[in-house]
């Protein structure tokens, strides 16, 4: 599996920007704090996944790079979730 192919740049931008605005709006009080924070962290992870895949153009066939980036993203997401939920 080599991952997805190129999407148009501005489609990617719209998804990334939309996710950013959504995370912000939820955190501003349109969702309960735990939901807003958790969604914001997960949205950040999805955005970064999209950046790896589409903007950096690193596909799963690029070993060991893509797995390393994947581990980094998973670890960073878990760290933030623990930082939130264990507090």
């Amino acid at each position: 599996m080599t991952g997805s192919r190129e999407w148009p740049v501005w489609v990617i931008w719209a998804v990334l920007a939309g996710a950013s605005v959504l995370g912000f709006v939820l955190a501003e009080g349109y969702a309960s704090p735990p939901v807003a924070a958790t969604v914001a962290i997960i949205l950040a992870a999805l955005k970064i996944h999209l950046v790896f895949d589409q903007y950096m153009e690193v596909h799963w066939g690029h070993r060991p790079l893509r797995p390393i980036l994947g581990i980094w993203l998973a670890a960073s997401t878990v760290i933030l979730l623990i930082g939130y939920w264990a507090a």
């Binding site: 950013s20 735990p34 924070a37 970064i48 930082g83």
Partner: peptide, 24 residues
């Protein structure tokens, strides 16, 4: 480009971590 996108994605985490983690 890869470097510039790294600057971008690190900010994505910082934004969520510093600004959006609203405590209950």
């Amino acid at each position: 480009g890869a470097y510039w996108h790294m600057v971008d994605l690190l900010w994505i985490v910082l934004f969520a971590m510093l600004y959006l983690m609203r405590a209950a």
